Amino acid sequence: MDYTLAIDDSPDTVPGGTGVLLLHPSTGETDRIDTDFLKKDTDRFLVISTRTTAREVTQKLDYYDVDAESAVILDTLSVDRGYSRRSSENVHYVGAPDDLDGIVQQTEEFLASHDGKLRVSLDSITELAYYAGEESTMDAIRAILALLDDHDAVGLFHLATEVHSDDVVDSYRDLFDGVIDLNEDGTITTDF
């Protein structure tokens, strides 16, 4: 199954199983790319949020006119920070951003329990690595990419370039089928 990408300078479509790495400066405005990725050609999508709460993700989806009815949100922050939370059919929680097993398990449950065209957005790898370490995070990303392949889904994974060494960034690049570079000036270059 093919998926429309709708991202500047990228292929019109990519096959199911494709993982895309979004490299960006720490201050980069990634919301537009992320929401464009989620808007098109999608039956259901999972947002794995390591930087913002489920409420903030919902606000972002509303602001960018993304169909929130199609969203499932995995909030990795609220429990750890002691915020009040209520699980629902479309909002799930893990204890903290370093609960990589829980994140992989929730991703697998989402992909196994929904049909049609499925997308996953993970914002961000950088936060996972901060909490759980680079090696464990890389293993978790490999596991999620394998799940995308198994379930014919696609994913977009954020990584802040200046936080990681060039070698680490290159190691992540090697895991993905496509790479989007968001430059400081807002321009995009891609490699698929």
Score class of each variant (00 low, 15 high):
residue 37 F to C: 02
residue 39 K to D: 09
residue 40 K to S: 11
residue 40 K to P: 08
residue 40 K to I: 14
residue 41 D to E: 12
residue 43 D to W: 02
residue 43 D to T: 10
residue 47 V to G: 10
residue 47 V to M: 14
residue 48 I to Q: 03
residue 49 S to Y: 03
residue 51 R to C: 11
residue 51 R to T: 09
residue 52 T to A: 11
residue 54 A to V: 09
residue 58 T to V: 14
residue 59 Q to E: 12
residue 61 L to I: 04
residue 63 Y to N: 11
residue 65 D to R: 07
residue 66 V to S: 00
residue 70 S to A: 13
residue 74 L to A: 03
residue 76 T to V: 07
residue 78 S to M: 10
residue 79 V to I: 15
residue 80 D to S: 13
residue 80 D to R: 06
residue 81 R to Q: 15
residue 82 G to L: 13
residue 82 G to S: 11
residue 84 S to M: 15
residue 92 H to W: 12
residue 93 Y to H: 08
residue 93 Y to F: 15
residue 93 Y to S: 14
residue 94 V to A: 09
residue 95 G to D: 12
residue 95 G to F: 04
residue 96 A to G: 06
residue 97 P to I: 04
residue 97 P to Q: 11
residue 97 P to S: 14
residue 98 D to W: 08
residue 100 L to C: 09
residue 100 L to T: 05
residue 101 D to S: 14
residue 102 G to W: 03
residue 102 G to V: 09
residue 103 I to Y: 02
residue 105 Q to W: 03
residue 106 Q to V: 13
residue 107 T to F: 03
residue 108 E to G: 06
residue 110 F to T: 01
residue 110 F to S: 08
residue 111 L to V: 06
residue 113 S to R: 05
residue 113 S to A: 13
residue 115 D to Y: 04
residue 115 D to N: 09
residue 115 D to T: 11
residue 116 G to K: 08
residue 117 K to G: 13
residue 117 K to F: 13
residue 118 L to G: 10
residue 119 R to Q: 05
residue 121 S to Q: 08
residue 122 L to S: 04
residue 122 L to H: 02
residue 123 D to G: 12
residue 124 S to V: 01
residue 127 E to W: 13
residue 127 E to L: 15
residue 128 L to G: 01
residue 128 L to S: 02
residue 128 L to P: 00
residue 129 A to Y: 07
residue 131 Y to H: 06
residue 133 G to H: 01
residue 134 E to H: 09
residue 135 E to H: 02
residue 137 T to Q: 02
residue 137 T to V: 05
residue 138 M to V: 06
residue 138 M to A: 08
residue 139 D to E: 15
residue 140 A to E: 01
residue 140 A to D: 00
residue 142 R to T: 07
residue 144 I to N: 03
residue 145 L to I: 11
residue 145 L to A: 02
residue 146 A to N: 12
residue 148 L to P: 08
residue 151 H to V: 06
residue 151 H to S: 09
residue 154 V to N: 00
residue 154 V to H: 00
residue 157 F to T: 09
residue 158 H to Y: 06
residue 158 H to K: 13
residue 159 L to K: 08
residue 160 A to W: 04
residue 163 V to L: 15
residue 164 H to D: 11
residue 164 H to C: 15
residue 165 S to R: 06
residue 167 D to H: 05
residue 168 V to Y: 05
residue 169 V to L: 14
residue 169 V to F: 13
residue 169 V to H: 12
residue 172 Y to Q: 05
residue 175 L to Q: 08
residue 177 D to F: 12
residue 179 V to Q: 05
residue 179 V to F: 08
residue 179 V to N: 02
residue 179 V to E: 07
residue 180 I to T: 01
residue 180 I to D: 10
residue 180 I to Q: 00
residue 180 I to R: 03
residue 181 D to I: 14
residue 181 D to S: 10
